[in-house]
Design a protein around this nucleic acid. Structure first.
Length: 404
RNA sequence: GUGGGAUUAGCUCAGUUGGUUAGAGCACUAGUUUGUGGCACUGGGGGCCGCGAGUUCGAAUCUCGUAUCCCACCCCA
């Protein structure tokens, strides 16, 4: 038997596909309410796109990409995340030159060559939003409120973690200060941290090693090193969240794994899905458009991991809907199918092809959650009528076929 | 990539010190007067015991390899 590849799953189990489509519908609705519109970009992109956007130092680019050479000799890659492609499309269509505000949402498969576990797959799905052209921190707040709205509508509880990563005025200075601090304790830190010092020094801050953590207690704090602009934006953001009753915790060690973030960084986490607890993450990336050869454009975005959310979604109770059509005589089967065809122009119809007694038709109608069970037997066939029972109201009537 | 646990019916799981035709619940299906659903009763289908070697008279059971899932590390959505 041929099986799907490691970490690549079908979404068709009982409840799963219902949850998946319900999520997409809900998230789409909220995103549209916020003025975002749908965009679809290719799964395959030039490898250079991800190297320049996500960053060479990240694990994603370093070891997790599905990268290969195609038959034309091009170095290509299955997208490991969604932002890079959207930014590329934005620039390619010269929207950076057009000016104005552009807001997009997308959803689709992403690929990372990792060791799978619960909530971590090699092919997984993200829903994401990207906003271009708004430098104001109000837009950052808007994005966070949007995620909050989506999660609330889906009945999903969360904790929101917030940080500011600074911008090109304060971040490089902080980075230098941190590196010299790390050098001062370098002999006592773990191997991983020694490696991080050169690849991505900020990452040492969330090292799990206890000895490292005790040493880093004295490290300079990013949050204390923000320049005036970053600090006031961060304060404004927190004020807006307070005003809108969105609870958050500031986590000065929250460092996003992708290099392109600056200023606002946020992560929504759930305590109910195992160790892969991040269900949504995002932040501001004001420099990315110019890194990818576009005209400098402020931008902010987020992505949600759909698989991680699925089991947390509280599904609305399923209501009976549509019609079930059945015949009690062979002679009526063809007629039933014709009726079904007509009715389907406007309604959802389940049609049973085998003649059965009334009891079994009612069972069948109940099983497909139909609202109305409609049956034609010999009596009905003679009189050109159809028997209809409303399974919810428990009322029944026999009406003329013409009125069906 | 490194460690640990698991894998038996569509699903959740039993299966004795290795011993005949491998079980249960749920689900599915058919009946229980050709006229009243959710319940109940009685039948039925469905398993290369993850896959491949080995030990043995004999393997779901013991050994090795391999694949996948789960957990931790790493990292992220």
């Amino acid at each position: 038997m041929i099986k799907s590849l490691r970490g690549m799953n079908d979404i068709l189990n009982d409840e799963e596909y219902k949850r998946y489509t319900y999520f997409i519908q809900t998230a789409t609705k909220v995103a549209k309410n916020y003025g975002f519109h749908f965009i679809e970009t290719p799964i395959l992109e030039e490898t250079a796109l991800f190297k320049r956007s996500v960053g060479e130092s990240s694990d994603i680019v370093g070891k997790e990409m599905y990268q290969f050479t195609d038959k034309g000799g091009n170095d290509v890659c299955m997208r490991p995340e969604g932002t890079a492609g959207v930014v590329r499309a934005f620039i390619q269509n010269k929207l950076d030159r057009a000016g104005g505000v552009h807001r997009y949402f997308y959803h689709g498969a992403m690929f990372r060559y990792e060791r799978p576990q619960k909530g971590r797959l090699r092919q997984f799905h993200q829903f994401g939003c990207e906003s271009f052209g708004v430098a104001s921190v109000y837009e950052d707040a808007n994005m966070i409120m949007m995620v909050s709205d989506i999660l609330k509508e889906l009945g999903i509880g969360y904790r929101l973690q917030l940080n500011s990563l600074g911008d090109q005025n304060c971040m490089p200075q902080y980075r230098d200060a941190l590196v010299s601090f790390i050098e001062s304790v370098e002999s006592e830190i773990c191997e991983d941290c020694k490696r991080r010092k050169t690849t991505n020094p900020i990452r040492v801050l969330d090292c799990k090693n206890e000895q490292c953590q005790s040493l880093y207690a004295n490290a300079p704090k990013l949050i204390d090193s923000l320049c005036e602009g970053c600090q006031s934006d961060f304060d404004t953001l927190k004020q807006i969240l307070d005003d809108n009753e969105i609870a958050y915790e500031t986590d000065t060690n929250l460092v996003r794994g992708l290099d392109y973030y600056s200023k606002t960084a946020f992560e929504f986490v759930s305590d109910n899905i195992g160790s892969q607890s991040a269900i949504a993450g995002g932040g501001r990336y004001d420099r990315l458009v110019e890194f990818l050869d576009g005209r400098a454009t402020p931008a902010v975005g987020f992505a949600m991991g759909i698989e991680r959310l699925l089991e947390l979604i509280v599904m609305p109770q399923e209501k009976r809907s549509g019609y079930y059509l059945g015949a009690m005589d062979d002679a009526a089967v063809n007629f039933i199918l014709k009726l079904a065809h007509q009715k389907r122009q406007t309604k959802k119809v389940t049609c049973e092809y085998k003649p059965k007694n009334l009891k079994n038709h009612l069972k069948g109608a109940d099983k497909v959650h139909a609202r109305f069970c409609c049956v034609i037997g010999s009596n009905e066939l003679e009189n050109n009528t159809i028997w209809i029972k409303d399974l919810e109201m428990k009322t029944e009537q026999t009406i003329n076929i013409k009125d069906f």
